[in-house]
């Protein structure tokens, strides 16, 4: 059993999506609990890749390819858990995510999403060009822990202020935390917006969310 989990780790580390799919299927067919595959095979592997990226030992593309390979395995394991009516386990946190209205940039946001998902968070990705009100509606609907918005343009970043305002108007600002990011933002802007957190990149954003959610527990 340990061998196949080791092979899954290696396949993730080698960005080998086909092997991850094959090995996860094989592991489950051989009677290994899908939760074990998730917790002892896929998750530690992607954490290892994330750490390497954090230390600048690997490039972003390597991280994303590993994340895609990992997600392919996660999907198989999750499907099996649903079939067996096992509980996947509660997500570590719920995050409503999107690129603000008028802005169609999605790469950073997508990386952030993938990294959060493989870290065990439930992400509600509203996509790009999202009106401020939609962030608020979704946050209320899913009882979100975080609202995360991205803005790549100086012309669109005022939308992040609007999100803050609308969250206040809806009366949930005290309950939900906000985090902003994107090329047009920095610490000074974050202060002006009045958000809780600012992240220079996707990796930092994920680290902040993990830290805050773990503290809340």
């Amino acid at each position: 059993m340990a061998d196949i989990l080791k092979s899954i780790r290696e396949a993730v580390l080698n960005y080998d999506e086909d092997s991850v799919k094959r090995l996860v299927t094989e592991a489950i067919e051989n009677g290994i609990n899908p939760l074990k595959v998730l917790n002892e095979g896929l998750t530690p592997a992607i954490r290892e890749v994330g750490d390497k990226f954090g230390k600048e030992e690997i490039f972003l593309t390597e991280l994303l390819l590993a994340a895609n390979a990992c997600m392919a395995g996660v999907e198989i394991a999750k499907r099996k858990l649903l079939e067996e009516k096992q509980k996947v386990g509660k997500p570590k946190g719920k995050i409503v995510l999107g690129t603000v209205e008028g802005d169609v940039h999605n790469i950073g946001k997508d990386i952030f999403k993938v990294l959060l998902e493989i870290s065990g968070y439930q992400v509600y990705d509203l996509g790009i060009d999202v009106p401020a009100g939609d962030f608020v509606k979704k946050a209320i609907e899913v009882n979100a822990d975080f609202v995360a918005s991205s803005a790549l343009l100086t012309t669109t970043r005022p939308q992040q202020k609007l999100i803050e305002q609308k969250l206040k108007e809806a009366g949930i600002r005290g309950k939900v935390k906000t985090i902003i990011g994107g090329g047009a933002t920095d610490k000074n802007w974050a202060k002006e917006v009045g958000c809780n957190f600012y992240a220079t990149d996707a990796i930092e954003g994920v680290k902040i969310i993990i830290k805050v959610c773990e503290k809340q527990k």
């Binding site: 960005y15 593309t61 994303l64 994340a67 999605n106 790469i107 790009i128």
Partner: peptide, 24 residues
């Protein structure tokens, strides 16, 4: 809307170092 990018392409991995010569 087109939502794809090249960051998660194996082609990027294969060629990034050869073409751009980054130093880690």
């Amino acid at each position: 809307r087109r939502i794809g990018h090249f960051l998660d392409q194996r082609h990027t991995l294969n060629w990034y170092e050869k073409e751009h010569r980054p130093r880690k």
